[in-house]
Simulated scan of single mutants.
Amino acid sequence: MDSTTTGLAFRDAVDTDVDALVALVESAYRGDASRAGWTTEADILEGQRTDPEGVLQVIKSPDGRLLTVERDGRIVACCHLEHRGDHAYFGMFAVSPTLQGAGLGKAVMAEAERRARAAWGVSEMHMTVISVRDDLIAWYERRGYRRTGTMTPFPYGDERFGVPQRDDLQFELLVKPLL
C-alpha cells in the first residue's frame, strides 16, 4: 500500500455526513473541479449528480449502506452498497479527484466487495455504468467486472440525474462474481 491507501477509516455514513458526501460526489463527476480526476462526466452531463435528499435516502435505506472512507478526519471516498437478493448493487462510487489514480479506488472497491459478502452472503456484485464511459468500464473490467450487454435507458428529462450533453446515453450492467 502507498500513502494514498494508508490511514483509511471505513464506516457507514450518518445523517451529519450528507453535505460532505454530496460535495464529494459532485466534485468527482461534475463541473470543472471534476477534471482534476479521471472519472469526470463533465463532457457528457451537466447539472447535479446527486442531492442531499438522495444521499439521505441511501443512508436511511434498510437494505443498504453508504460506505464512507475517511483519512485524517476528512471524507475522501464513498460508495453505495445495496442488498438485492442473491447479489449486491454497487453505486455512488466517488473518490476525491485529487486522490484518483493512486490506488484509493481499488482499496474502496475491495472493501465494499468484502463487506457485501460478509454482511449478505451474496455471490455477485452488480453495477450500472454509462455505456460511453470506456475508460471507466475498462477500469472496472481490470477489477474483475464483465460487461453484460444489458442496457437500460438514461432518464432523459429528469434533471436529478444531470443534464445530458449528448443523445446516446444509456446504462450498461456490469457483473462480478464474489468468490
Rank of each mutant, 00 (worst) to 15 (best):
R143L: 15
E159G: 06
G121K: 07
Y156F: 14
R74Q: 13
P62G: 05
L104S: 10
R166Q: 15
P62W: 04
A28F: 06
Y29F: 15
L174W: 10
E26Q: 15
Q57V: 02
S123P: 00
V175H: 04
E111R: 13
G144L: 07
G31R: 09
E124W: 01
R114V: 00
C79I: 03
V55M: 06
K106V: 10
C78H: 06
D168W: 12
T150P: 00
D12Q: 08
R143I: 01
Y156R: 06
A94C: 06
D32E: 15
R160L: 11
D2I: 02
V175F: 04
S131T: 13
G54S: 09
L24R: 03
L67F: 11
R166C: 12
A102N: 14
G31D: 12
F90Q: 01
H87G: 00
H126T: 01
H126K: 05
D86V: 03
A28H: 05
R133I: 08
R117L: 05
A20W: 04
R30V: 13
T148Y: 02
F161M: 04
E46S: 15
R74I: 11
T152K: 04
M127N: 10
W139T: 11
R35N: 13
E111F: 11
L24M: 03
A23R: 14
Q165F: 00
E172H: 10
E113V: 01
F93A: 04
G54Q: 13
A77V: 12
D135R: 15
W38T: 12
L169H: 08
